[in-house]
Every structure is written in C-alpha cells, then in structure tokens.
C-alpha cells in the first residue's frame, strides 16, 4: 500500500486538520469530528445534517457551507459515525426551525442516526426529520434485504434541499424536497479497480486486469456481476439502461445527469463517459436540464464511475441553480 498518510489509525483526524487549515470559513469540532458551517446555527433556518463513513470526500464535509449542509459528521473510513457525533451536530445547527438528517441507506448509518435522533429527542426539544436515500438500482429492492444503497442522489439531494432551506422554507417543505429528489433519482456504478482501505493495507477485492465490476457500491463491496472490460460506449449503456428502466422517463422529462468519479478515475475519462451517457439519453428521448461531472462521492482510490439521473421540474432546476458556496461545490457567488 502506498498512500499519503502518517499512521492508518490517524487518517480521519489528520484529514480534518487539513480541512480546517484550508477552509477557515468552516468550524471543525475535532473532538466530535463534525464539520460545521462557520455561521451555524442560523436563526430561523432549517439545519441540514448529514454524515457517514470517511473515504467518500468531498462528500459530506466538503458540502458544508452556504446553500448546502450546515454540518457533516465524519466516521472512520467506510464506517458510520456514532450517535454522539450526530447529536452534537444536530444541536449545533438548530436555529429553532428544526433539523433534517440526510442518511444514506446503510444498516449502520440508519441505526446510528436513529439512535442519535432518540438521544436528541430525550435531551432537547429539537425537531428532527430524517430522509434516507436509496437510489442504487444495482441492489434488488425487497422487504427481505437491507434495501437499496444510498449513492449519487445523495449529492444532488444535499444541494437541492440545502437551497430550499437557504430560501427559508420550513422543515416539512425541505423534507418534502428531499423525499421527492430521492424518489425521482436513480444511480448505477461500476469499478475498474478495488479501493484500498488504509487500515486494511491491501485492496478490498481482487479484480483481474481485464475485468470490471458492474453494480459496485462505494465501500468496496463487490458488485452484482463481473464482466470483461468494454469500451466506454458499452459501459455507458450498462449503467444508463438499468436506471432508465427502473424509473419511468417520458419524452420531455428533464433530468440532472450526474457522472461521478469514484476517486481513481481522471476527469478526462469522466467527460468521455458523460459524452457516451448523453448519447444514450438522446436515443431514449430524455432531455438533460443540468449536468454535473466530477468526483463528488468517491470510494477512496477506486477507479470507476457512477451515473445518476434525477427527474427535475422547474422548482428543482431553480433550486439547482441557486448559489452554493462549499469546498466541493461552488457557483453563483
């Protein structure tokens, strides 16, 4: 393993020190490992809290700031944060209008956020609503599984719900925006290589040089099938078609098309993939309203990408265009 680290046990703490140094506009609680907006809590504004295992940067800490999250909790690498962190984040961003928890659908994240909400309810009067993202079509959805994983839609949701909160919408409406975004978005990912968790020291799974993993998760969980490496145009079809067939898209529906890098794929390949994705969308009569291309939800050093499509109406497009100022996403300011 070759990585820019000191000690594998200190990766998260060391990286948070770097974030604090690079972004003095943020306030970082190093003890609880929570990244706060510098001006939190904002009176009268709904607070947005997310969090999850580390290793997905810029998600979530890189999305803290004006127009997006108010706080993000950083867990160990690929491990959900603990309820104490989430409770500290929640009370720290409560400006009297309630707090929205944005939770990716993983067993650990859901249980820890549930325990945090119970803790906050017992200790203060803060109103908390949780929205769980579960947009990964690679996972079969069924009552008998942990359900679909929360992936790319989470990034879009944090931006859109963040904009709604910034406009001063009440908690119920911000939560409604979040639920709508989750219901109207779907994702599918693929990997060319495994990632290497610093504490493990070696790749999480073996992937032969000429094979790729389709339907991969963002924690090095292997995907649902392994196939020979193919040209980008064929990979785009393997990713877009399951998304389109899972969510009814009718002619004229606008989408936000999001091609996300998993950490080890250069931007030139992501743009190349985006070209192939738009070609498939055009063929299917789906109109792209807005786009996002880059590595926003990563899986450490994994090479590969995911494609997310989110159906949007005029309100969501306006929320997308609204100003945002965070380390990871920044426009209109």
């Amino acid at each position: 393993m070759k990585k820019l680290i000191n000690d594998p046990a200190d990766v998260v703490a060391d990286a948070l020190r770097g974030m604090a140094a690079a972004h003095p506009e943020l306030r970082i609680d190093h003890e609880n490992r929570v990244v706060f907006r510098g001006d939190a809590p904002r009176q009268g504004k709904v607070g947005l809290v997310s969090g999850g295992g580390s290793g997905h940067e810029p998600m979530h800490g890189g999305f803290v700031g004006m127009g997006m999250l108010d706080a993000a909790c950083a867990g160990e690498v690929f491990t959900s944060p603990v309820p104490d962190q989430m409770a500290a984040a929640t009370t720290g961003v409560d400006g009297g209008a309630g707090v929205l928890h944005i939770v990716k659908n993983y067993t650990g994240d859901v249980m820890n956020f549930e325990m945090a909400a119970e803790l906050v309810a017992a200790e203060s009067g803060t109103e908390v609503v949780a929205v769980v993202t579960d947009d990964d079509v690679a996972v079969q959805d069924s009552l008998y599984t942990a359900g679909r994983r929360g992936v790319g839609v989470t990034v879009l949701l944090e931006k859109l719900a963040g904009a709604a909160a910034e406009q001063g919408r009440p908690l119920a409406e911000v939560a409604e925006v979040a639920r709508t975004v989750n219901a109207q978005g779907r994702s599918m990912g693929m990997a060319l290589t495994s990632c290497t968790v610093p504490a493990a020291g070696k790749p999480t799974f073996d992937l032969p040089e000429d094979e790729m993993e389709i339907g991969v998760g963002i924690h090095g969980e292997p995907g649902r099938r392994r196939v020979k490496v193919a040209p980008a145009r064929e990979i785009a079809e393997m990713l877009v078609e399951p998304v389109l067939s899972d969510l009814e898209f009718s002619g004229g529906d606008g989408v936000i098309a999001f091609v996300n890098g998993l950490g080890g794929t250069p931007l030139i390949e992501l743009y190349l993939m985006y070209a192939e994705v738009t070609r498939v969308l055009e063929k299917s009569g789906v109109t792209v309203a807005r786009s996002l291309v880059g590595s926003y939800m990563t899986s450490l050093d994994m090479a590969g990408c995911s494609v997310t499509l989110l159906k949007v109406d005029d309100d969501l497009v306006r929320l997308w265009d609204a100003p945002v100022r965070t380390p990871g996403l920044r426009w209109g300011v």
Binding site: G53, G75, S80, P81, V82, G108
Partner: peptide
C-alpha cells in the same frame, strides 16, 4: 461501544 464503534456493529 455505541459511542466508539460506529458502523452496524456499534449499535448492535
């Protein structure tokens, strides 16, 4: 364990 572990095994 609830405070230090995280993931699924902490709460469980």
């Amino acid at each position: 364990l609830v405070s230090k572990v995280g993931g699924a095994s902490g709460p469980l």
